[in-house]
Design a protein around this nucleic acid. Structure first.
Lengths: 333, 333
DNA sequence: CTGAAAGCGCTAACAG
DNA sequence: CTGTTAGCGCTTTCAG
C-alpha cells in the first residue's frame, strides 16, 4: 500500500500521520513556534527523524510574504580569479545570513546575462548581485520584480535603480600616475582595455587628471586602448618601446594588461617602470620596477552582499547607495 | 481594485485573464507545446510581455515528476583557486544543460557540510556534487533522498553510494618520483599534508611505490607529514636541509606545500630539485629546478557534472562509476 | 495548545 | 485546439 514511498520523499503530511497530529502542528514544531506541548513536540521530532523528513523549501516559499532565502549572483566567469574572489566574498556574507547562493556566469555576453537574470527571477531569488555586461540594461526594469533589490558590482548601470559597489578607479589611477610623476617620469604610456568599459574609461580619466595636475600635456600617441588580453597588451607595449622616444613608464589598465606589459619590458630589457591595476597580490619580487594599485575583489563581493542584505532586512526606503573601494598603492621595487 | 498588483508578481492566472484563455493554455504556450492555435498563442505572448510575467519555477517543480533544474555544489572555499577552478568546470557543464548552480562552502568543516547538504535537499536540487570533508558521511544515507544522485569530487566516500571523480594520485606521484630517481636522486624527501587526507595518503603511497620499484629503501626521516600551509612546509624543508646529509630532491604533496618548499630551497641557496603536485600552471620560469604533476581542477568539475547529468538524463541503472584524472608531468627547468 | 479549511502558482489528466 | 478539475507541500487564517 505504500509501494511508492521509496521514490516519493516524505512530506509534512506523512509526518503528521506518523505522529498523529495535524499538519499545522508539525509545521509549528519545525518552525520553532512555542505554542506546542513538549510531549507532542517530541513525538513529532521522532517522526521527522524516523522518516528522514526535510521541509520542502520550494513549497514553503510559495506562500506570499515568504522569502526564498536564495540570492542570485551573475558574474563573468568563475575561471577568472577576479570573479572567483568576488564570488567568494559574496558567498561568505550570504552564508552568514543563512542564504544559499544561486549562481551563473554571463561569460561577458549581454544576452546570456539576460537569460541568467530571468532564470534567477523564475527561481524567485530574494535579491540579485550582478557584474553587468554590455550597455543596455533596460530589460532589468521590465524583467525584475519591483520588490527584488539589485546590486551592481564593479560597473554601475544607469538604466536601472540598484545599489552599486565599485573601485575608486579614477582617483586611484590619478594617485598612482602621480607617484610616477613624482619619481620624475614625464613620458608615461597608458595601455587600457576596451574603451567602452567603465573601468577603462575611469582609469584613463584618472591618468589624464594626474598629468593635468602636474601641468603635463597628455601625449595621445602614448595612450593605447583595446588591449583585451596579455598578448595584445604586450604587442602594444613593444611597439611603444620601439619608437624613437619611448616612454619611461607604463600604466597598465588591469591585471591581464599588466602581465603583457611585464613581458614586453622584460623582453626588451628596457628599464621602464610599470604601474598596474590589480586585484591580486604578486608572489615574490618582480625583476622590473613595479607598483600596483591593489584591491581585494572579495571585498567588492562582501560589500555588495552586505548592501543587499541591508535592504532585505532593513528599510527599503533609502535611495540608491554607492560604495567605493579605494585601491592601495603598493611599491614592489 | 488592483492596489496590491505592484508588490505581487503577475501569475499565470493573471496572464490567462488578460488574454481571455484558461490557465492551462497559457501553460501550453509557455512550455512550447504545439497544440495551440497561432492566434491564441500570440495573444498570450502579448499578455505575458505586457504584464512582465515570468513563470514561478518553484511552483512548477512542486508537481511530482518535475525536476528543479538546479544542481548543488559543496566545496571547501571559493577563495581557494583550486576550488574556484573546480566550481568553474561544474558551472560550465551545468549551464550547458540549462541548470542553475546552487552553491555553498563547507569551509572544510564537517558540520557545515552537513548543514549545507541538508539546505540543498530542502531546495530539492536534482543532484549534488560534493568535495567531502571529514570522515563520517553516514548522514548522507538518511538525509539525501534515494532519487538524488551524488558525485564526490577529489576524495571518495565509502559510506555512501555515488559516483567519484579523483586525480590519479598514487600512479601520478609514482611516475613523478620515478623521474627524479632516473635523474640520479636517491635521497628524496617528501612533505605531505594532513596524514588522514585521502590525497596525502595516496600520494605518499605513490612516493613509496617509486622508491620500492627502484630498490631504494624509504628513509622515514625524509618523510614529513602535517604541512597545512606554506609556512609549515617551509619550516619542514629548512629543517631537512639543515641536517648533516640533506635530501637532493623534494616531493611537495600539494600546491601550498610546493610554495613553502620553493621558498626554503631558494632561501637556503640549495640546489635541490623540486617535484610538485599542483592544479595550476606557473607563470614564467622558476629559479630552481622544478617539475610539476599538473592537472586541471576545472576538468575535475566538468567530469563530475558530466557524471551527474548522465545519471539525471540517462539510466540510473549502472553501478557507481569512478573517473580518474591523470596528472601530466611537466618539466620546468 | 491543537485542528480544519483554504490557497500560494503551476501542470497532469481528462473532458469537450 | 481549448477548458475544468484537482492536487503538488506547505502555511495562514480562523475556530475550537
Amino acid at each position: 500500500m505504500e509501494a511508492n514511498r521509496v521514490q516519493r520523499l516524505p512530506t509534512l503530511l506523512d509526518v503528521a500521520r506518523e505522529s498523529q497530529v495535524c499538519p499545522k502542528t508539525v509545521s509549528r514544531v519545525i518552525n520553532g513556534e512555542n505554542n506546542v506541548s513538549q510531549t507532542t513536540a517530541t513525538r513529532v521530532q521522532e517522526a521527522i527523524a524516523s522518516l528522514g523528513f526535510h521541509l520542502n523549501d520550494n513549497a514553503r516559499s510559495l506562500r506570499p510574504g515568504q522569502r526564498s532565502r536564495m540570492v542570485g549572483l551573475v558574474i563573468g566567469d568563475l575561471g577568472n580569479p577576479f570573479y572567483a574572489r568576488l564570488a567568494s566574498g559574496v558567498e561568505e556574507v550570504a552564508r552568514a545570513h543563512g542564504n544559499l547562493l544561486l549562481m551563473s556566469s554571463s561569460e561577458e555576453d549581454a544576452n546570456r546575462e539576460r537569460d541568467v537574470v530571468i532564470a534567477l527571477c523564475r527561481r524567485r531569488v530574494d535579491g540579485m548581485m550582478i557584474v553587468p555586461t554590455g550597455d543596455d540594461h533596460a530589460y532589468l526594469g521590465t524583467s525584475v520584480g519591483p520588490g527584488t533589490p539589485l546590486v551592481f558590482i564593479d560597473r554601475p548601470v544607469s538604466e536601472s535603480k540598484g545599489d552599486v559597489v565599485v573601485i575608486e578607479n579614477r582617483l586611484g589611477a590619478c594617485r598612482g600616475v602621480n607617484s610616477l610623476i613624482e619619481r620624475g617620469h614625464r613620458r608615461i604610456a597608458m595601455i587600457a582595455d576596451n574603451p567602452l568599459m567603465y573601468t577603462a574609461i575611469e582609469r584613463t580619466a584618472g591618468y589624464r587628471d594626474a598629468l593635468t595636475d602636474a601641468g603635463i600635456r597628455a601625449n595621445e600617441d602614448l595612450i593605447r586602448v583595446g588591449a583585451h588580453d596579455p598578448d595584445r597588451a604586450e604587442e602594444m607595449a613593444l611597439e611603444l618601446l620601439d619608437r624613437p622616444d619611448p616612454p619611461t613608464a607604463f600604466f597598465a589598465g588591469n591585471n591581464r594588461i599588466c602581465i603583457g606589459v611585464l613581458r614586453a619590458v622584460t623582453r626588451s630589457a628596457s628599464n621602464c617602470e610599470i604601474l598596474g591595476f590589480d586585484s591580486v597580490e604578486l608572489i615574490g619580487a618582480p625583476v622590473v620596477r613595479l607598483s600596483l594599485l591593489s584591491y581585494d575583489a572579495a571585498e567588492l563581493g562582501r560589500q555588495a552582499a552586505q548592501l543587499l542584505f541591508d535592504r532585505l532586512n532593513g528599510g527599503a526606503s533609502v535611495g540608491s547607495r554607492r560604495v567605493e573601494i579605494e585601491p592601495r598603492l603598493m611599491q614592489y621595487a
